[in-house]
């Protein structure tokens, strides 16, 4: 087993100069302040020391993925991907169905063995320390399957027994996600199952939660509650990895986003950059000849509808259309396909 390396920042007691140091848990190191020359010593906390996790620096990478490749026989599901997830951020993992999102997540959690590359979570290699890593990771599976013969209470009890930690978040969670705990999970609706999946992932206050399309199965009202909950959790400093195929959802809650397509990461952007690139789609049918409009680069004709991609200039476009007789009109958010069509059309079909 490789020794774990902890990255810490310490403050010089004399001049408040901040120094970055690296070392393994339990190791004592002698430091000299580069600014004022004061000497001191620092003992790295043991890895099971909960406190140490909270004091990691903010640009500490909770997940580091380096050239990860996963093949199923001859099919390359994940192709040489690399990305980092920083502590305390909501990291969006966006891609159409079948792009490799779930494969990436399942590889990170140690369910699948990577063919190539490596990944670290909390600085620990997933190959060697996956059980240790999972102590501080919550997970909401994409295809959530539960022990249906158990009641909600028994189900949560089982996992709390396995994890053997305090369920410090449980009551807060029950306030948001009400559940019929004494009913067998067999009798739960899809939404209820998703809720218990969420509760199970967050209940012992893990340092990071990995979510694979967690909002599928939630009604709009609950989705809203869930987004608010995630924002609150982010404020507490929890790192969250959020996979989705819905652009507007990622755009709304994530800080950074990696876009995966056909097993490759095609973009890694700040949400602000992504927002600039997304927009609205005006779809309309007009009585007059469409030739003039569709000759514009933003417009195209699909099944008799003119489609115009607009960013911030929606007013300008609506006014421009004023001279036509409009038979029908729709305004939609960009979806992932529109985004791909616009930015990655050259790399093959969406």
């Amino acid at each position: 087993m490789k020794p774990e390396i902890i990255l810490k920042t310490v403050k010089c007691p004399q001049c408040n100069n901040i120094i970055e140091i690296k070392g393994s848990p339990g190791k004592k190191s002698i430091l000299t302040c580069s600014k004022c020359g004061v000497k001191g010593s620092f003992t790295f906390p043991k890895s099971d020391d909960k406190q140490s996790k909270k004091t990691h620096m903010s640009d500490y990478n909770v997940i580091e993925v380096k050239n990860l490749t996963k093949k199923y026989k001859d099919v390359v599901a994940v192709n040489n991907i690399s990305f980092n997830v920083k502590k305390g951020e909501i990291f969006g993992f966006l891609g159409p169905n079948g792009a490799g999102k779930t494969t990436t997540i399942r590889t990170l959690l140690g369910f699948l063995k990577p063919n190539n590359g490596e990944a670290y979570i909390f600085g620990k290699n997933i190959k060697e320390n996956i059980v240790e890593i999972r102590k501080n990771v919550g997970y909401i599976p994409g295809e959530l399957a539960l022990y249906e013969h158990l009641t909600g209470r028994q189900f949560l009890q089982f996992f709390s027994n396995i994890r053997n930690t305090d369920l410090s978040l449980l009551n807060d969670l029950f306030e948001i996600f009400e559940l019929p705990l004494d009913r067998k999970i067999k009798g739960y609706s899809k939404g209820m199952k998703q809720k218990i999946g969420i509760v199970q992932a967050f209940m012992d206050d893990p340092e990071m939660v990995i979510m694979d399309e967690p909002t599928s199965g939630l009604d709009p009202l609950l989705q809203q509650k869930f987004y608010e909950f995630l924002k609150k959790e982010k404020q507490k400093g929890r790192t969250m990895f959020f996979s989705s195929h819905i652009l507007s959802e990622v755009d709304r809650i994530c800080d950074r986003v990696a876009i995966i397509r056909n097993g490759k990461i095609v973009a890694l952007e700040n949400i602000e950059t992504l927002k600039k690139k997304t927009g609205k789609k005006i779809r309309l049918r007009i009585k007059e000849d469409t030739t003039d409009i569709i000759s514009l680069p933003q417009a195209s004709l699909i099944d008799g509808w003119i489609e115009i991609s607009v960013q911030n200039n929606i007013d300008e476009w609506i006014k421009r259309m004023g001279k036509y007789t409009i038979l029908d009109l729709e305004i939609q958010e960009f979806n992932l396909e529109d985004y791909f069509m616009r930015y990655y059309a050259s790399e093959g079909g969406a």
């Binding site: 140690g110 369910f111 919550g138 997970y139 599976p141 295809e143 539960l146 396995i162 999946g197």
Partner: peptide, 12 residues
């Protein structure tokens, strides 16, 4: 598919 939720816990 319950193995996913089981194995997401600290069990080898």
């Amino acid at each position: 598919k319950t193995i996913d939720v089981l194995m997401s816990n600290p069990v080898s």
